Simulated assay, not measured.
Amino acid sequence: MYPPDLELYAILCNELFGSKTNLTKLEVVLTKIISNPDYILVGVKDETGKLVGSVMGGITCFDTVGECRSFMVLENLIVRENCRRLGIGKKLVEYIEEQAREKNCYFIMLMSLIKRKEAHQFYENLGYSANTAKSYKKYL
């Protein structure tokens, strides 16, 4: 994803979060993400060039236990509401999983807001389990 897609990506983010994304800050952050090899940010466009899905994640994290293999964080998987159930989200997750395997990651973890029941079913259908860990989050 590149700066020309900035406004298209902001629209997707707005759909996921329900609030307006700060374009100036988003451009700064996207520039950092794109230049960092430990991050993956990909998008999917329809035949008209409209961004219909993306995943920001594929954040490779070091681990210090066991075999000290890295793990990957999947974050901000977004598919436009009118484009869901077309396999876009599944393809984005599969891409992240492929990247994790190539980086020899031990696992992928993600968080999903408790109210997003449809998303939970989607992740479980892809083999992710809500029964292996409990997630905590503190907003600062």
Rank of each mutant, 00 (worst) to 15 (best):
Y95T: 00
I114P: 00
L92N: 10
I11L: 15
S35W: 06
P3H: 03
D5C: 01
C13E: 02
I40M: 05
L41E: 09
G58F: 02
E124L: 05
E118A: 15
L77I: 02
E47N: 14
K134N: 09
Y123Q: 01
Y9E: 01
Y95Q: 07
I11D: 13
T24K: 13
K25R: 15
K91R: 09
L113S: 15
V44I: 15
L86H: 13
F71P: 11
E27Y: 04
R84I: 09
I40A: 06
E94P: 05
L8T: 07
S70L: 06
G66I: 06
Q121D: 11
M1C: 07
N76C: 13
V55Q: 07
L16P: 00
F62D: 13
P4A: 03
C68N: 03
C105Q: 02
C13F: 06
N82T: 10
K25Q: 09
I96E: 10
M56K: 12
Q121W: 00
E81T: 11
C105R: 05
A119H: 08
M72V: 11
A100I: 01
E47I: 13
M56W: 13
Y106R: 14
N125P: 01
M109D: 10
L8F: 09
E97D: 05
G53A: 09
S112H: 02
L6Q: 04
M109N: 12
K25T: 11
A133H: 13
Y139D: 15
K45C: 09
G66Q: 12
L77E: 03
L51H: 03
Y9T: 14
R85W: 01
R101D: 11
L110D: 00
Y2H: 12
N125M: 08
E75R: 04
Q121A: 13
S54P: 03
L6C: 05
S35N: 09
I33Y: 04
A119Q: 05
M109Q: 11
T48S: 14
Y106S: 14
V29M: 09
V79Q: 02
E94Y: 11
E102W: 05
S129N: 09
I108T: 07
K91T: 08
M1G: 07
